[in-house]
Design a protein around this nucleic acid. Structure first.
Lengths: 343, 343
DNA sequence: CTGAAAGCGCTTACAG
DNA sequence: CTGAAAGCGCTTACAG
């Protein structure tokens, strides 16, 4: 009743262990006929190579690693990551790869985990999220020789594959839409300032503000949580000449901002237009439903997994840009109630 | 620059490989003095035992497995699981255990994954979610000899540890509160009917309806998604004598239900009171904020991990019941607008 | 209390 | 094209 080993298969097929290994791994060294006989025997016995043994012998562990950086006080994880993981898993499962997940509370832990993985035969490669400009993890991964794919903007150093879309295009779509509705004062509730994609969005926003001659274009940074989004909203709306539209860097904060506006007695979209970046179910569920920058997050995950798997197969790819997020207009945006005519 | 092996440590400490292994694993067979010398040498070299090698030699892999059953069309994962995973990880990291995550699209896949894990030296034990009455996975796990902890109500068969709280108590708290406010017609938007904890909640609800002589107490089942919660809400509110209060089996559906009610022209809580089971940030964020059955989901995760780790250490525990969810009243509940006086 | 040896289940040069 | 052998880095009886 114990599990069949490669020796059992070899005996059943009347060949040596080595031949079985070659046959199973699709290597040259066995004739087509014996290969078929071996595969049939393996199948009949329900043989699956032991991962630990494979890994120890230097073969791929068929496992990829993902660390998630969550400061201790942040409970749970954003919808973004859940969808991302769904997408990753969908692709990895197809190829019989496992996902090793590790949450860390600080950045040093994260590189420590990479080092352990790299030395441990634990994972064949890693997926890297929440990239910083000049991210300290990337040199560590290179030093370890651990294949990696970045889920985020293509990192400055180059040399590592990445999957991301053009956030500048998406932001432009949202802001031009708001301007077309008559908004001239547009605020942004941004995420964590260190993150590379936050920087990209900020630069794009500054450009747009200049190009479109916005009256004001304030940005407030947050840690992506609902409460912090609420705080930022209060701050922006409390200004002397407050924005008439707010673009949020995630859905959770947009929902929080919506509630804040309503508490302050503002109607949405009458007094304030709200746009969410990322379109999780909650955007459709609140009232009014939120205009959102919609993208297929699970697709990022699938693409990232494909890219990593490709590089594990020795097929290098340097970067893939996926479809940018596009605007899905809903009930939370409209022209400002007392819009002044364009100057 | 390659990683130190146990032989390096042995050489550095001037002992045999076996002695190092004993010292590192806290086994008898080395004197206290040599143990210390060995540990110091290991530390100095930054030695960590290779997981694959350990696993292959029959020692614990220091990894636990979690499968998540997600039908293909369900994108993403509920907030519940994210918080649960946070809690699991918090505990596992402390003990240097890794979490192997695997999403599956159907139940057969799930047992197949268990079988692979069981034979593969991949995990030392598993965490089981979404338990059914008479769950087919439990016999498989027993057959495999894979230690398991159920996150959910204590399963009928016994023999396996479980972590859960008394949902009947929580539901009673919510329903009695609504009755005290004057509600006599209370509906329930329930989760997936097969799940053991859904059954428990339904039984408790039926009991309460009888005991408190509710005028009506309809239940509508869902798949936990926002859209399905919206559908259930429409159905329940469309009845001849619709409920004046609705209790939802998760937060996502409660938020969706809130939006449906508002679309139907009902005010919350004036015309309809809404209670959510589980209290994620989104409950506080929507307007009005949702009255919720609050529980510490991450604590479930921590407890479950502790229990599994204990059973891996040979310390058996049969079940732990954690603090029940308690009601957090917020703005979404009030007396019914046109409540009839109690009969 | 310690050392030398076998073995976990694979993979991979290396001879035939 | 195939077989016998070494080795991956550990753990664990087993002699000393």
């Amino acid at each position: 009743m114990t599990r069949p080993t490669i020796s059992d298969v070899a005996r059943a097929a009347g060949v040596s262990k080595g031949a079985v290994s070659y046959a199973l791994n699709g290597r040259p060294g066995v004739s087509e006929a014996t290969r078929r006989r071996i595969l049939a025997a393996a199948d009949a016995l329900g043989f699956h190579a032991d991962r630990a043994a494979r890994a120890l012998a230097g073969a791929p562990a068929k496992t990829v690693g993902l660390t998630l950086y969550r400061p201790a006080r942040t409970l749970g994880v954003e919808p973004f990551f859940m969808e991302l993981i769904s997408g990753l898993e969908a692709e990895l499962s197809l190829r019989s790869y496992a996902l090793l997940l590790h949450m860390v509370a600080d950045r040093e832990q994260e590189t420590a985990v990479y080092r352990r993985w790299g030395h441990d035969h634990a994972v064949d490669g890693v997926l890297v999220c929440d990239v910083l400009d000049d991210d300290p993890r990337l040199p560590v991964l290179r030093e370890l020789g651990l294949p990696a794919v970045v889920i985020g903007p293509f990192p400055a150093g180059g040399r590592v594959s990445s999957v991301w879309s053009d956030d500048a295009v998406s932001l432009q779509e949202a802001v031009e839409y708001l301007v077309a509705l008559g908004h001239r004062r547009i605020g942004r509730v941004a995420g964590i300032p260190d993150l590379a994609h936050t920087r990209i969005r900020c630069a794009a926003f500054a450009n747009l503000a200049r190009k479109l001659r916005l009256e004001c274009a304030p940005t407030e940074y947050t840690d992506y949580t609902g409460p912090d989004g609420a705080r930022a909203t209060r701050l922006l709306l409390g200004a002397a000449d407050p924005p008439t539209a707010l673009v949020y860097d995630n859905d959770i904060m947009a929902v929080a901002g919506l509630a804040v506006a309503q508490e302050m007695g503002l109607t949405v979209p009458g007094d304030l237009s709200v746009v969410a970046w990322d379109d999780s179910p909650v955007c459709r569920i609140v009232h009014p439903a939120l205009t959102a920058l919609t993208r297929d997050i699970a697709a990022y995950g699938r693409q990232a997994a494909q890219l990593l798997l490709a590089s594990l197969d020795g097929r290098e790819a340097t970067g893939v840009s996926v479809e940018a997020a596009h605007l899905t207009p809903r009930a939370s945006t409209a022209g400002p109630a007392n819009a002044r005519p364009p100057a």
